[in-house]
Simulated assay, not measured.
Amino acid sequence: MTYINPQDVHSPKNHWKLVDVIIDEGPGRCSYAIGTWDGERRVGFRWNGTDENPIGNPQSRGLPTWTMLDDKLHPAVIALAPEDKQSLISAYLNRPRRIELVVDRHPSGRHTLKEREEGKGMYRDLGGPLASNIDQGEFYRAVAKEIASRQEAGQHVVFRD
């Protein structure tokens, strides 16, 4: 017997309602799904089974089950998901859309960090030490702070230098 397809795992039924499996890495590997746990939108996680142990982990009374990830890990799972599913997952979890941060280098040697929200056409310059900065060290320290701050707030940040 091969492993149980994560799309067929619906336990614990009293708490979990599966919406979609967003990552399935195959036998003996992990799977992630979105769904509701006691009515709250969440990311579920489980280890797929193998030929020797088709149920996988976690399990309860011989049934394959899902366990919930801490909300703080949701952005990391979104980043792991296939790119074509990331917007759907973000919207389902009420997470901000993916933000793209791009460094713009002026011929004068000045650096500016620009941002663009996924689905939008135009970039917007950020201010302070992130705008028209000639000091490369100060600029990149400010970039690191900006990225960390956004990730801490739950945003999915894509950075291009």
Rank of each mutant, 00 (worst) to 15 (best):
D8L: 14
P96D: 09
N53P: 03
E117N: 07
R95D: 07
L93T: 06
Q7R: 13
K13C: 02
R150P: 05
R42H: 05
K17I: 15
R141V: 05
P64T: 10
R61V: 09
P107N: 03
I147G: 02
G119N: 03
A76N: 07
T65F: 09
N94H: 10
A153R: 10
E100V: 02
D24H: 04
K114L: 14
D125V: 08
M122S: 07
N48F: 06
W66G: 00
G109S: 07
H106F: 14
R141I: 04
K72V: 13
P12I: 10
I23R: 00
K145A: 09
Y32M: 05
S60D: 15
Q7N: 14
K17R: 15
D20G: 01
E40A: 06
R150G: 00
N14C: 10
T65Q: 11
R160A: 09
Q136Y: 09
V19N: 08
P96K: 00
Q155P: 02
W16C: 06
F139K: 01
V158G: 01
F139Q: 02
G62D: 03
W16V: 09
S90N: 06
A144L: 02
V19M: 09
I99E: 11
P75G: 06
I55A: 02
D51Q: 06
I134H: 13
Y140V: 03
P12C: 06
G44T: 05
E100I: 11
E100H: 10
R46E: 05
R41Y: 11
D104I: 02
R98E: 13
E118V: 04
E138F: 03
P64D: 14
I78F: 13
G28M: 05
D135L: 06
T67H: 06
K114F: 08
G109H: 10
G128L: 08
G154A: 00
V77T: 08
L73I: 11
V77I: 14
V43K: 00
R141D: 13
A81R: 01
K120D: 14
P82F: 04
P12N: 06
S149M: 00
L73M: 11
S149R: 08
M1N: 00
H15F: 15
R97P: 05
S87P: 04
H111S: 05
G121T: 07
L18M: 03
R98M: 14
R105K: 10
V43H: 03
K72C: 08
E40M: 12
E152M: 08
G28S: 03
Q86N: 11
T50Q: 04
K72E: 13
I34G: 00
P58V: 09
A131K: 14
P82R: 02
F159N: 03
R150V: 00
S132D: 15
R95I: 03
D135Y: 11
I55G: 00
D70T: 02
N57C: 02
R29G: 08
D8A: 11
R110M: 11
N57Y: 13
A81Y: 07
A81K: 01
R110T: 15
Y32C: 05
I89T: 12
R160K: 10
